[in-house]
Amino acid sequence: MKRSWLENNTFHYSEFNNLNRLVEEKQRKNLKISLCLPTLNEEKTIAKEILIMKSELMTRYPLLDEIVVVDSGSTDNTRDIASEYGANVYEATEILPDLENFKGKGENLWKALYITQGDIIVYLDADIKNIHHRFAYGLLGPLLLFDDIKYVKAFYDRPIAIGKSKIRPTGGGRVTELVIRPLFSIFFPELTQILQPLSGEYAGFRELFEIIPFPIGYGVETSIILDIYEKWGLDVMAQVDLDKRIHRNQDTRALGKMSFAILQTFIRRKRKLGLIDFTEDLFDEMIQYNLVKNEYMPDIYKIEGHERPPIIEIPEYREKFKKPML
């Protein structure tokens, strides 16, 4: 196992807090950088994320060129608030409207590639309660300062909010430890060096993102890692310790659905690579049970596992970004 990757490609955000240097590198390399926030009912946190990023990384240090919100159809005030604080706000369904519509985080990330201008795209979840500009510059640091790094993933100490007002010092990352890490250990031991493969904060060059497929749902983080690993190897990746991330806690049932989608993505990737073979098709329904009036009632949730093709295959994208026709 290449132990050296963990040593060589793991950073702490404080190594990149000289923002003037990052701005200089960005300008020297003539790069544009876009920040994308995928949202679904995030009215409590979205304003803070936009505001802090805009103040610190656009007004004070011109590191970001645009902040884009791609929304999955929020029913609260997410879109209005995001517009009020100066983000470019899109409903996912408005982007490439001629394509079949899907709903999910991966869909938003994929469509963001079409509406953003950046050579580098930073993706941040929109539910971070302790948002700080280090979440963006920490991810950008390795991309700007090291020519061989093309994709950077975040990891942190992840306290989760319990109850209304108390903070528990450790915890979180349950799906990582119970699902992803065992799978990686069995199939791709080298990838276990990525400490939090499911973190929702990552950044990379457009040239990578545009040629890999995006699952529309929760499996997107896993698939991005697997695809980049398969195409370019581990050395184009890095991970950055962003210290602490506080987010909404999800209940076990929600995590079960997330695990289902991740397993689905993982198995499809393995199948595509010819590493495993199933004689029958997989089912696409997550079945959980509720006790209703002393009877166990199934709660069936369909997770179809749709996947968007590499966006470079979409003619509108090729036309907009002046890519040669396939």
């Binding site: 009215e43 409590k44 946190t45 304003a47 803070k48 505001l51 005030n77 209005d80 608030i81 009020e84 604080y85 309660k129 302790n130 909010a161 209304k164 007002s165 108390k166 903070i167 506080i246």
Partner: peptide, 17 residues
């Protein structure tokens, strides 16, 4: 210090401890 100090920002307000 164990109280949640994270703020919520809306169009014209900031809420929090």
């Amino acid at each position: 210090k164990d109280i949640d100090h994270y703020y919520t920002i809306k169009e014209n307000s900031i809420t929090g401890t």
